[in-house]
Design a protein around this nucleic acid. Sequence first.
DNA 1: TAGTATACCTAGAAACTCGAGGTATGTCAA
DNA 2: TTGACATACCTCGAGTTTCTAGGTATACTA
Lengths: 114, 114
Amino acid sequence: MKADKSLLSGSTTLLVLSLLSTGDKYGYQMIAELEEKSDRTFSMKEGTLYPILHTLEKTGAVDSYEKEAPSGRTRKYYHITKKGLKLLGEKKEEWTTFSQAVNAVLAGSAPTLA
Amino acid sequence: MKADKSLLSGSTTLLVLSLLSTGDKYGYQMIAELEEKSDRTFSMKEGTLYPILHTLEKTGAVDSYEKEAPSGRTRKYYHITKKGLKLLGEKKEEWTTFSQAVNAVLAGSAPTLA
DNA sequence: TAGTATACCTAGAAACTCGAGGTATGTCAA
DNA sequence: TTGACATACCTCGAGTTTCTAGGTATACTA
């Protein structure tokens, strides 16, 4: 990740599920979309994404199928399941709670030299 | 942490510095304040906090001094330095960028069953 | 005087991401 | 036709961060 790699932990699953909630996608595409949608803040690495996708598949939050691209190359598409949508809902809520809590703490802090 | 332990990564330093920007504090107190200000979302563990404080001290973002509490017990107070304030400013900005990016990605996601 | 809250600390395990590597196919230019 | 580059998938080991679980010690309270 770019911004602060360590800030990312835990939100990756949320981001991946969020992307998949708008339609089936393949790995390489998700990385590009994430980068674009986040205005270049996120640049998830393949070494991060693929293990996440495999874990999500193992737990039944997504399933996958292969499909040939117009170019002729085979791509592996991921599809979010009902279980995955439920998980997304939970993760979203967690994120909201979490970010509000951080903002609450920051609100009390002294103005900085920034 | 409670909410989702892994969401926390990277924000702990931000939170600690933020707390210290409003005045000198000792470890135990910070854990309590964090819990209170975040409305019970954060419950940072001692095993997390103390190593962070030690690292911040090593890098010069905070310094510390011992002081006797009214009770008679000795407490170790931490004080944020100029360097620490600068670091806080940077971390704050990182947090803002990061959270906006996450929200941007979520904004595009389908409404969930939540 | 025994239990609980306060207050500090550390070592090892667990989780997560990244860097670096590997394999393979399609495209395009020399 | 061959070499370079982008696309597309994958894995392993290192590094970072947090937690669990312990340890030590003092003050208060029943």
